[in-house]
């Protein structure tokens, strides 16, 4: 019997908006990795001394570095929103026998995020 098999295009993820969003979400990991590189360069500069730290500041202040980091920030925020949004579907948490509503799980994630961010910011700029 001859059947018709629809071909899969190389850019299949352009077919639906949800697929595009999915691919962007997955690509956020590249910017997470970029952040690790950036952080390690900062750590290296700090441990090398004040002069080296100043060089890092000058380097990270160039317009193209700021542009890269703004782009990275957008992707990281996409990661945050999608990650927290999907979290309640991967975990079924029960308190005293009843399921915790998804909204509360998401809210707890954002709360933890705010508290941690505030703590880190305080530690850095204090």
């Amino acid at each position: 019997m001859s059947v018709y098999q629809r071909p899969v295009h190389l850019f299949w993820w352009l077919e639906r908006r949800a697929y595009v969003l999915f691919v962007l979400r997955e690509l956020s990991s590249v910017f997470v990795a970029w952040f690790v590189v950036f952080l390690l360069l900062l750590v290296n500069a700090i441990s090398d001394g004040a002069a080296s730290y100043q060089r890092f500041l000058d380097w990270s202040g160039q317009w193209w570095m700021v542009a890269i980091n703004v782009l990275a920030m957008l992707f990281v925020l996409l990661h945050v929103v999608t990650w927290f949004g999907l979290a309640p579907r991967a975990m079924a948490i029960k308190v005293r026998g009843s399921r915790v509503p998804a909204k509360q799980i998401v809210a707890a994630h954002y709360l933890a995020w705010l508290v941690l961010s505030a703590a880190v910011a305080w530690l850095v700029v204090r």
Binding site: F35, L57, M65, N69, A72, V76, V80, W113
Partner: peptide
């Protein structure tokens, strides 16, 4: 990454520069 990266990247990648 979701919990820690945004604030660190925001401070050192955008705010301070």
């Amino acid at each position: 990454a979701a919990l820690m990266v945004p604030i660190l990247l925001f401070l050192f990648g955008i705010v301070f520069p």
